[in-house]
Write a protein that binds this DNA or RNA. Structure first.
Length: 562
RNA sequence: GCGGUCGUAGCUCAAUGGAUAGAGCAUCAGGCUUCGAACCUGAGGGUUGGGGGUUCGAGUCCCUCCGACCGCGCCA
């Protein structure tokens, strides 16, 4: 078996499994390696002995020792591939020889941008996030969801899943009428400044240019029209303009959506009606107080939910009933919805839908926690009232896409985020995005100084055996973690692991850079270090790419504007 | 009141049930005639909110109390 020959760790795993099977007299158990927190314990460790201690009625340490001996007996050539293997405190620890890390670098150079990419899993994931009312520009808070969502989407795709990224525009409720009335008021105010603005309207300035556009194209055409005539037109026109703006901002922010679903379209096409009929046929609905309810408690929800009000109008949930059916109908095996913290009450009723649609557990709701904006010491109001929200576009212009995305993804989605605008803008070592980008740029700079011929030889992974300094091997080991980090980020829906890892890679590189000069006289060492730097650059570009952050060839320090 | 998320260094946050809980910032002390100092090295800093439990082992899982935020509408 080829892998067993080239990959010492896999070979060790196989030998240990065999030793376990021999000891148990059966198929044995899986041997999993972890990377010990304390590097003194080696590169990898396994705790299999603890799991066997109870059934074997022996001390973990004794089992670990026996397993290690058994492994070397099962594979006599193994010991030469490992620098060191020991049984300590019940753990089996192993330290790989330098050649193992040289191979890791070689593989990165060979596979390049495909390093760590998973084979197609056949799993179709529908990932929805960011979805918003089409009544105003995207707020700064949306930026967090967009960053987390698109990073997760990129990463899942990289890991081999088929991912459809979705957005639903809530253009079917009462708020869309309020938008139409607000826009109409702005339109009328062009000639009649005293024209009353609706009380439940959207007072933000963003409607002014849209109204101005209508004044240009339609003139006074709607001034004498009845509300029944103008309301549908103004609602739709406003929605179209605002959705277009939202799409444009999301794209500029690096969040691409495959599906922009209109809630209204679900109603117009009869999907909502069909969805409710489906639930009715499953005997999951009943009437009470003139309204139609869904028995979501049947599937663990706290209370049943109304889908059709007593006045005959469907609720917001009705749209979800249809939309989530559609996601499964389009082939999703797993549906993930990322919601804001104020929507976590929705989890129960969405889970109920998954169960009703015969995909129990097929809908996963990720709740990203609250974000507060700060400007130095001052908390910036994010209130929509008064229309003075901080928009995502403003954030992009003020701190840039890279810094914003990096900051938004950095903390765990479970953790509330305080985003300090002055901090994110600062071009100094307090800003981690620069730290990582600087690492990438530094490598690019080295490559510019090397000759093209040297770079080519490095790309061919020549002389990797000359890597032996602790900083060189530590860096190689870190790069080797990348596929594992990708898998972890996907499995735990934890995109923040990527940014954390990016900082670790950058830190290990900067240490390597400080300790080991790359362009030295010794040709072989120079090529080997150039190869390591190139592999590092590849990994940094991969991680930054997944996070939607630019990997620059050089850093341009902007003039200080304070 | 019920439900959800969380509580870790002065601050912002990490840590697939593993071994001595880690980074960055801040503070203090050092390092550039050499590939980019937006960098590196070192030091101090902790009863992981309190208490109980589960087990070989708990920041992590369970119970309870305290505290913060958020939900609890025939709004979206």
């Amino acid at each position: 078996m080829a892998p067993a020959q080239t990959d010492g760790l896999e070979r060790f795993r196989t030998a240990l499994s065999r030793a376990v099977a021999e000891m148990m007299g059966s198929d044995g158990v899986a041997v999993d390696f972890e990377t010990p927190r304390n590097p003194q314990h080696g590169d990898f460790a396994t705790n299999v002995a603890f799991g066997l201690a109870k059934t074997m009625r022996r001390a973990p340490q004794a089992i670990a020792t026996a397993l290690l001996e058994g492994a070397f007996r099962a594979d006599p050539g193994l010991q030469e591939m490992l620098q060191d293997a020991s049984a300590l405190a019940g753990f089996i620890n192993v330290r790989m020889s330098a050649a193992y890390w040289h191979n890791a670098v070689r593989r990165i150079l060979r596979e390049n941008n495909d390093y760590g990419r998973g084979a197609p899993t056949g799993v179709h994931v529908s990932l929805e996030f960011g979805s918003a009312n089409p009544t105003g520009p995207l707020s700064a808070v949306q930026g967090r969801t967009l960053s987390v969502g698109s990073t997760l989407a990129n990463t899942m795709r990289f890991a081999g899943h088929a991912v459809t990224v979705e957005w639903i525009t809530n253009d079917a409720g009462t708020q869309i009428d309020a938008l139409g009335r607000s826009l109409y008021a702005r339109y009328r105010q062009h000639w009649e400044p005293e024209y009353p603005f609706p009380e439940d309207g959207y007072p933000g300035d963003y409607l002014l240019p849209i109204a101005g556009e209508l004044v240009q194209t339609d003139g006074q055409r709607w001034v004498h029209a009845s509300e029944r005539e103008w309301l549908p037109f103004f609602s739709r026109f406003g929605r179209d303009r605002i959705v277009a703006e939202q799409q444009s901002v999301a794209e500029s922010f690096g969040a691409h959506f495959d599906v922009w679903q209109s809630e209204k379209a679900l109603h117009d096409q009869g999907a909502v009606e069909a969805g409710i009929a489906r639930l009715r046929a499953m005997n999951l609905t009943y009437e009470r107080d003139g309204a139609l309810w869904v028995r979501t408690t049947e599937y663990g929800d706290d209370e049943d939910r109304v889908v059709i009000r007593s006045d005959g109008r469907p609720t917001y949930y009705a749209g979800d009933v249809a939309y989530h059916y559609d996601k499964f109908a389009r082939g999703a095996d797993l549906v993930i919805d990322i919601l804001g913290p104020d929507h976590h009450g929705y989890i129960g009723r969405l889970n109920a839908l998954a169960a009703a649609y015969d995909h129990p557990g097929g809908i996963e709701v990720l709740v990203s926690q609250q974000m507060t904006l700060k400007r130095g010491e001052h908390t910036v109001s994010l209130s929509k009232r008064g229309g003075n929200i901080v928009t995502l576009r403003e954030i992009m212009e003020e701190v840039g896409v890279d810094a914003a995305r990096f900051f938004f993804v950095m903390p765990s989605p479970d953790s509330p985020l305080t985003f300090d605008l002055t901090l994110a803008k600062e071009q100094s070592d307090v800003n981690p995005v620069f730290y990582v980008q600087y690492g990438h740029a530094r490598i690019a700079s080295i490559e510019r100084r090397a000759t093209p011929e040297q770079c080519e030889r490095a790309a061919r992974a020549e002389h990797l055996e000359r890597l032996s300094e602790p900083e060189e091997l530590a860096l190689a080991k870190r790069l080797h973690e990348f596929p594992r980090v990708v898998r972890g980020a996907v499995e735990f829906r934890a995109p923040h692991r990527l940014t954390r890892y990016a900082r670790e890679v950058a830190a290990d590189f900067h240490q390597f850079y400080t300790a080991c000069r790359v362009l030295v006289e010794d040709d072989e060492v120079r090529i080997a270090r150039l190869a390591l730097a190139r592999a590092t650059k590849t990994i940094l570009a991969l991680v930054l790419g997944l996070a939607g952050v630019f990997a620059p060839e050089s850093m341009e320090r902007l003039p200080v504007t304070s």
